[in-house]
């Protein structure tokens, strides 16, 4: 028996802050699995995906919420990501159970920091750092795009009218949070 126990640590220690009624917080219990579609394997994978989550792979730039509050988001051709509430370090076993061997899976749960920005000032804060047009008619709810914020690769997903899921590499989480916090400090009254 090994005498030592490993303790997990949230990337940003569960950051949570409110500026008036706009809130920025780290989502610490989210699992993410990247799925690549094998060549000539789209039909088989879509079948499984539809059975498991209710829909086919969305077009690049789109996402949907499937069964079990699972978000399936696609940023590229032949590649998508499945996100779901899960406190543990690995999401692959859960996805594999549903999709079998129809896709190539890469664990992304620990690769990212997941932040949620919500409230009336969310767009104004993003406007200072992100080139994406977040007008609700252009960047509709469930839209999910990769872009950059202050030179850092970013996944931006609109999860509600005033709510965004924002992801960046976990190693730059500190700089990334600083960018969003600074934006909030600047735009809030």
């Amino acid at each position: 028996m090994v005498d030592f126990t490993l303790e997990p640590k949230a990337v940003l220690d569960g950051f949570d802050k409110i500026w008036n009624s706009t809130r920025l917080r780290e989502l610490t219990e989210l699992a993410a699995v990247a799925v690549s579609v094998p060549k000539d394997g789209a039909v088989a994978l879509n079948q499984k995906l539809k059975a498991a989550y209710g829909r086919n792979v969305p077009a690049a730039g789109e996402s949907f919420i499937g069964k079990g509050n699972t978000r399936v988001m696609s940023f590229a051709k032949d590649q998508f990501m499945i996100l779901f509430d899960h406190a543990a370090h690995s999401g692959i076993p859960i996805v594999e159970k549903k999709l079998g061997n129809t896709g190539y899976y890469v664990e992304q749960t620990n690769n990212w920091v997941f932040l949620e920005l919500s409230g009336p000032q969310a767009r104004a804060a993003l406007e200072r750092v992100c080139p994406v047009n977040t007008h609700v008619d252009k960047f509709t709810v469930n839209r999910a795009e990769r872009t950059n914020i202050e030179h850092m690769g970013t996944v931006l997903c609109r999860t509600g009218d005033d709510t965004f899921l924002i992801m960046s590499a976990s190693s730059t989480a500190g700089s990334f949070l600083h960018a969003l916090e600074t934006s909030m400090d600047y735009v809030s009254q």
Partner: peptide, 14 residues
């Protein structure tokens, strides 16, 4: 373009 091969960065995963 027709090889079946996919890549993904996992630098920050580990």
């Amino acid at each position: 373009p027709d090889w079946d091969v996919h890549i993904m960065s996992v630098t920050d995963s580990w």
